[in-house]
Write a protein that binds this DNA or RNA. Structure first.
Lengths: 167, 167
DNA sequence: TTAAACTTTCAAAATATATTGAAAGTTTGT
DNA sequence: ACAAACTTTCAATATATTTTGAAAGTTTAA
């Protein structure tokens, strides 16, 4: 397979994978394109490569930046901005997990904490509280686990954790 | 908070959380409703509780069944089927992870394996293959990790793993 | 064998999400 | 201060996904 065909296949695969996990296709594709580009790309480069509009590229690059996995870079002598993806996949994975932890897991955990306060001592109420407490405890542990991953260094992640889990 | 209000809040929260993770809202809500119901529910019960159509309930309950986290039950003397969710949240989480592994991770890993065969020995081609190999290795490890979780017993999950990660 | 009780299907409609692109806004160099 | 070069915004449009509900299909009991 040729390099260019490979890049296109990667962009396509990453786009599908992203959309299966609630990330919009273009955002995932821009991320993929930047991951496999040797050089940082401009808005125009991305527009051309993926056939999407300027507005779309602007929105999604900004979004990728707020996720902390893409950064703006300046080339000397150039007025416009270029974009570049962090190519360390462990850092990327941890940043994504951590952002989703904060944005999506956080609110659920808060709701679950409230729900443990439901009144009543009937069988039904106790059963409800048991289910909620189980889910809550599972969620809190997942939350702490991701927090620890963020603090740990890459070596811990690839070394100790992977050994513990996979070997 | 009263039990009923609590149940509704839980159903709402679970629906939002699900849709953020690429699971349709009704499916997540049906799952939530079954999780907090003391008794198995019929199609009609679910239609009424969530205000959705018969077709929608039918599609989504069948989908939940293929995920392995909801089962049909029969009540004696009753003609129709009732639905019941597995309330062991660890089992549920592992089943969901494992299904997503098979359905979504699998195809990506296959593509990545192909992409490692890209021709060329230029700096650009080597850089591409390095990025692909990194992502591939991360993905394969995640895949193996989930496979091990499936095989392990609940105690390993709640005990050893959580201790290793969180404590 | 019939019909009532129930489940499933799927084309059409509704809803939600993503994308466009032109206009407005901003920055920079002269 | 100006205008060229660039970025951002957002209402309109397009696309994708979900939901509906009536009709078709199936099962059961008498």
């Amino acid at each position: 397979m040729e390099l260019n065909e490979g890049k296109n296949k990667f962009i396509e695969a990453w786009g599908i994978f992203g959309s299966e996990w609630g990330i919009n296709r273009t955002m995932a594709q821009i991320h993929a394109l930047l991951l496999v580009s040797a050089e940082p790309l401009s808005t125009e480069d991305i527009m051309e490569e993926l056939n999407v509009s300027r507005g779309n590229v602007n929105m999604n690059t900004r979004d990728l930046i707020t996720w902390g996995i893409v950064s703006r870079v300046l080339k000397k002598g150039e007025r416009r901005e270029f974009f570049q993806a962090d190519k360390d996949i462990y850092k990327v994975a941890i940043k994504i997990m951590n952002e989703r932890r904060k944005r999506e897991l956080g609110p659920v955990l808060e709701t679950l904490r409230e729900l443990k306060q439901v009144k009543g001592n009937t069988t039904e109420a106790r059963e409800f509280k048991r289910v909620v407490a189980d889910i809550s405890s599972f969620g809190e542990n997942t939350d702490k686990m991701i927090e620890r991953m963020v603090k740990a260094d890459e070596n811990w992640f690839t070394g100790s954790l992977m050994k513990f889990l996979v070997k």
